[in-house]
Amino acid sequence: MLEARLEQAALLKKVVDAIKELVQECNFDCNDSGIGLQAMDNSHVALVSMFLKSESFSPFRCDRNIALGINLNALQKVLRAAQNEDILTLKAEDAPDVVNLVFENATADRISEYDLKLMDIDQEHLGIPDTDYAAQISMPSSEFQRITRDLSAISESVTIECNKEGVSFACEGDIGKGNIKLRQYTNVDKPAENVEVNMTEPVALTFALKYLGNFCKASGLSEQVRLCLSNEVPLMVEYALANNSYIRFYLAPKIGD
């Protein structure tokens, strides 16, 4: 059986908010190391890979591998009944028809219990190769969200270029063009504001802004975001969570001229 208790329901609420635009139905794969999820969007352009390590829960128990096939819209309806600060416990049997969710407020004078029906989801699992990315950029997630939003007003796609000068986000549309350059920046007192650029070779790739805008829905999960790029491979956008848990998005580049 599965029993996983989260100190704050906010984490699961934010995870579902972050991925439900991309993916409507997916398996939550539970095993003794935690709860993972991998799913592509309908057009197979983007992929989300999330893992909540067992250490992110207290306690965490999962005796056997269990796949919880969940409609995220339905899960969100149930999660709306949880306050952000509620303690959230997920429970399921070994071959479950439902997942049980319990929300307790901090003073333990309210306990809400819901059963969410599960579904059989036949999902393809993709192997994500370990990649030594040519460029890695860490920046405030709010900054990335702003850049994505501002450029979306001008164009459908953005070219992310990383070279010795730093990193630039450039786009061109019917009304004109835009270009945002970021340089390395270190704030010892506020590390969340840091911009770090590590590059082993210059990279320039073009991506659809629509998907980047979807990824940015995860901004509330982490103050910093990491962009990893290599020429001719998908972009990885990572929001690191506590306890080495993470939510990562992959986006196939636009190809050709």
Binding site: H125, I128, P234, Y250, A252, P253
Partner: peptide, 14 residues
């Protein structure tokens, strides 16, 4: 005009 790549052409089915 640039086309959109597909994620399955980079990551293979397991």
């Amino acid at each position: 005009k640039a086309g959109q790549g597909n994620i399955t052409s980079f990551f293979k089915k397991q």
